[in-house]
Measured scan of single mutants.
Amino acid sequence: HNGKLCKLKGIAPLQLGKCNITGWLLGNPECDSLLPARSWSYIVETPNSENGACYPGDLIDYEELREQLSSVSSLERFEIFPKESSWPNHTFNGVTVSCSHRGKSSFYRNLLWLTKKGDSYPKLTNSYVNNKGKEVLVLWGVHHPSSSDEQQSLYSNGNAYVSVASSNYNRRFTPEIAARPKVRDQHGRMNYYWTLLEPGDTIIFEATGNLIAPWYAFALSRGFESGIITSNASMHECNTKCQTPQGAINSNLPFQNIHPVTIGECPKYVRSTKLRMVTGLRNIPSIQYRGLFGAIAGFIEGGWTGMIDGWYGYHHQNEQGSGYAADQKSTQNAINGITNKVNSVIEKMNTQFTAVGKEFNNLEKRMENLNKKVDDGFLDIWTYNAELLVLLENERTLDFHDLNVKNLYEKVKSQLKNNAKEIGNGCFEFYHKCDNECMESVRNGTYDYPKYSEESKLNREKIDGVKLESMGVYQILAIYSTVASSLVLLVSLGAISFWMCSNGSLQCRICI
C-alpha cells in the first residue's frame, strides 16, 4: 500500500475532517465546509473527530445509520420544511452556546429548535410527501429539559409530546424532565432520530412541544462500492481501485494482509504473511546465498510486491572476458508455465471484495464479540484455502523447474562428451581453451567436438587428477538461474548478450 488516501476510480472521497457522521448530518456549525458535499467514492472519518452533536445527546440507531450510509455515493440536500413558512405559530430561531460559531450562539444547520411564540405553543402538524424518486433521509430531535421551569419557559406545556409517523415508522416521544450533570454547559439533553422515507411515502410530524424540527433532508443515491473508513492518512493526487484505512492498494494479487476493511475492488484479506509461490528452483544453499535460486511470486499485497520470474541462460568467462545470454527457448517455456500457473491461482482465488467494518453500540458488546468470532472463522478458512492451494502448486513448480534445468544440462553434456569433466555440482571442467566463438557454439548447439578432442585428450593426460582450476583450465557451469522482474525479464530476452569482463582471468566458464 502507499499510505495515502486516493480517488477511487477517479472519484474523490468525502473527508469529514474534524467532524464525524453525526456532526455532518445534523449540521454542526463547525462542519459548515461539508454542506456543499454532493457525491463521493467513500467517506473518511478520523479516529478522534471532535465535532459531532454540539448540544449533548445521542443519535439513536447511529450504527444502523452508518451502515445505511456505507452504500450511499451521492445525496441532494434540500429544504424539507421551509423555515419561514412551515411554522407560522412558533418561534424557530432557537440557539445555544453549546453550538457556538465564530463566538456567537448558533444551532444545527439542518434542524430548527421550535419554541413557544408569545406565551403559547399551539399543537403543530406538518407533513412531507417524498417526490424525489429515491429514498429521503429525514432527521429530527426531541429536547429533554433539566427542570419543569425550563419546560414551561420554552414550550408552555408541561405534558408535551412529539409524534412522527410514516408508512414504515411510527413513534411517540415524551420529554424526560430530570436533573443531569452539566455537559457542554447544558443540564438538558437532546436525542436525535432518523428514518428513511421511501419514494411516494408521507411523513407526518405532530407536537405540542420539545420538537427539534427537520429543516433540511437528504435524497440518497446508492453506490455499492462506497463505504466509510476511519483513517488518519492524508489525501493525495492519486487514483486506485482499492482503498484501505492504511493506504491505497493497486494490485491484481488475490490476497492482502494490510487491513480487513477495504473499499472498492480489493484482494481478499488473509492473516498469512508467507503466502508465496515459487518460480525458481529448489533451494541450493551456495546459490541461494548469491540470490540466484528460489525466486518467488508473492500473492499477498503487503507481504511480497508483485511476481518475480526466474529465467535460464548461459554465463561464460574466458580470456576475452565474461558474458550472459538467455536461453530463449527454455526461458519462454518457463515463463509460459509460470504465467499459466499464476493465472490459474488468481482465477481460482481472485474475487474482488469490498469489506466494511460493522458498528455496534456499547450495549451490543456481546453481539460485536460474536460477530468478530464469526469473521475470524471465515478469515481462517480463507487463509487455509489460500495456503493449501499455493503449497500444492509450489511442489509442481519445483518439479517443473528441475526438468527444465536438467534438459539444459543434458544438452551441454551431450555436446562436450569427454572434452570436459562433470564435477558433480552442476559444473563441467573443460580440457581445452574455449574462446567466445567456442562458447557461442555450446550455447547454440553447434559445438565442434572433433575440433577440440585432441587438445582435450592431451590435457587429460597431463592433469592426472590435479585440480583443474589450479592448472588454468576452464570450467563450464551447467545450471544457472538469475532473477529478474517481469519487465526486466522481457528486456533481457530482447538482448543477445551483455558482457562482464574479468581482467586477466584465465578461467573459461559457460553457465546455464
Rank of each mutant, 00 (worst) to 15 (best):
S234F: 08
M235S: 10
T240C: 13
G247R: 04
I249C: 10
N250R: 11
Q256N: 10
I263Q: 07
E265H: 14
C266T: 01
Y269A: 06
V270M: 02
R271D: 05
R276T: 08
Q288I: 09
R290F: 00
F293R: 05
G298V: 03
G298F: 06
G298D: 04
F299R: 02
T305W: 00
T305Y: 09
I308S: 10
D309G: 05
W311E: 06
W311R: 00
H315L: 14
E319D: 15
G323V: 12
D327M: 06
D327I: 15
K329G: 05
S330F: 00
N333T: 12
A334T: 07
S344Y: 01
E347V: 05
E347G: 10
K348P: 04
K358Y: 12
K358W: 12
F360S: 07
R366E: 11
N369K: 10
N371R: 03
K373Q: 10
V374E: 05
F378D: 07
F378E: 09
D380F: 04
T383H: 11
E387C: 08
L388S: 07
V390R: 03
E393Q: 13
E395K: 07
D399T: 10
H401A: 05
H401K: 10
H401F: 06
H401V: 06
L403V: 09
V405A: 06
N407E: 09
L408V: 06
Y409S: 02
K413I: 03
L416P: 11
N419C: 15
K421Q: 12
G426R: 08
F428M: 12
C434V: 02
C438G: 08
M439C: 01
M439S: 07
E440S: 13
N444D: 06
Y452M: 11
S456L: 14
L458V: 14
G465T: 13
K467C: 03
L468H: 02
A478K: 02
S481P: 03
A484L: 13
S486W: 06
S486E: 02
L490A: 15
G494Q: 01
F498T: 08
W499V: 12
N503M: 14
G504P: 01
S505I: 10
S505A: 09
Q507P: 08
